[in-house]
Amino acid sequence: MPPTIPGFTYHRVPVADGVSLNAAVSGSGSPVVLLHGFPQTHLMWRHVAADLAADHTVICPDLRGYGASDKPADTDGSGDGYAKRTMADDIVTLAHALGHDRFALVGHDRGALVAFRAGLDHPDTVTHLACLDVLPTLDMWDVLHGVTAAVGFHLYLMAQPPGLPEELIAAAPDAFFGHFLDLWTNDPRAIPADVRTAYLDACRAAVPSIVADYRASAGVDLAHDQADRGAGNQLRMPVAVLQQDWGAALGFDAAALWRAWAPDLRHSTVTCGHFMAEEAPADVAKALRDLLAR
């Protein structure tokens, strides 16, 4: 059995036709939903979730296509079934099923893209929004250029039509997913052996759905962001963004990119690696508490 978050109760909640999400829940008080990133599961929140559960109801799902949640097939190769709009709708339905009409939403990496989309599509439902170590899809594609784009090689690989990406990744899944676990952390101790094994096991079983999630970001997700930008839509709730200093490394102003979407923004950079909820959980928990107090 994969590890679980101690003290949390696990639920399996239907959110769409043929799709149920695995979710860990604990605590009481105003609800906070925590969405994991790639190549992880809800377990990435184990430290932060335990902290917040002291005075909040904390919900940690596995996203559609990841972990122990259902993984519907991307039957037409469009990625539409893994559009962030669809995945955001999953999370709203999940929270409602658990009794919460309004909630704060926090996402890391891929989960942050789902959270971002939920904030735009469901502004009366999402009370506060935090996005960790990501740029909105439209801005992400804009800033990647030249040799610096090599840092995002996996984005281009998984954007390809169905077939080749899945075959290549499935041929050496532990090497592929393990590469990011190794490269993106500044402190390998932050992901102990049992958790690393759980991440790799989960990814190995989810190659097609993970690829479909990324493929959507080169298609339908980008189109949704472009439509919102054209319409002048913005995030109306208080927003916090924590990320590594990508701007200094790649030559752009990350805070300015985020502020175009989020007028009520607090943007800060971190010195830890990408997996900040595991490498610096106390700092992340404090930042989230500061956001929730706004």
Rank of each mutant, 00 (worst) to 15 (best):
T9D: 14
Y10N: 11
P14C: 00
G18H: 00
S20V: 08
S20G: 03
A24V: 08
S30R: 08
V33D: 03
V33S: 09
H36G: 05
Q40D: 11
L43G: 05
R46H: 13
A49M: 06
A50H: 13
D55S: 03
T57L: 01
R64E: 03
G65A: 09
Y66N: 13
A68D: 07
S69M: 00
S69C: 00
D76T: 01
Y82C: 02
Y82V: 09
R85V: 01
M87G: 01
A88R: 04
I91T: 03
D101N: 04
L105M: 01
V106L: 05
H108N: 05
D109T: 12
L113K: 15
A115F: 08
R117Y: 09
A118N: 05
P123F: 05
V126Q: 04
H128T: 12
H128R: 08
V134Y: 12
L138P: 13
L138Q: 07
M140S: 14
W141R: 07
L144V: 14
H145D: 15
G146I: 01
Y156H: 12
A159M: 13
A170Q: 10
A171H: 11
A171E: 08
P173S: 06
P173Q: 01
D182Y: 10
W184R: 15
W184A: 12
T185W: 14
R189M: 15
A202P: 01
A202F: 01
C203T: 11
V207R: 04
V211K: 06
V211N: 10
R215A: 06
S217M: 12
A218W: 07
A218Q: 04
G219T: 08
G219A: 11
V220K: 05
D221N: 07
Q226C: 14
R229Y: 15
A231G: 04
L235Q: 01
A240Y: 15
L242H: 09
L242M: 14
D245P: 06
W246M: 07
W246K: 13
L250Q: 05
A255H: 08
L257P: 08
R259C: 09
A260L: 14
W261I: 02
W261T: 14
A262W: 07
L265H: 07
R266P: 15
H267P: 03
S268E: 13
S268Y: 14
S268D: 13
T271F: 10
C272H: 09
F275E: 04
M276T: 15
L288A: 13
R289K: 06
D290Y: 06
L291F: 06
L292S: 05
L292F: 01
L292T: 02
R294N: 05
R294S: 13
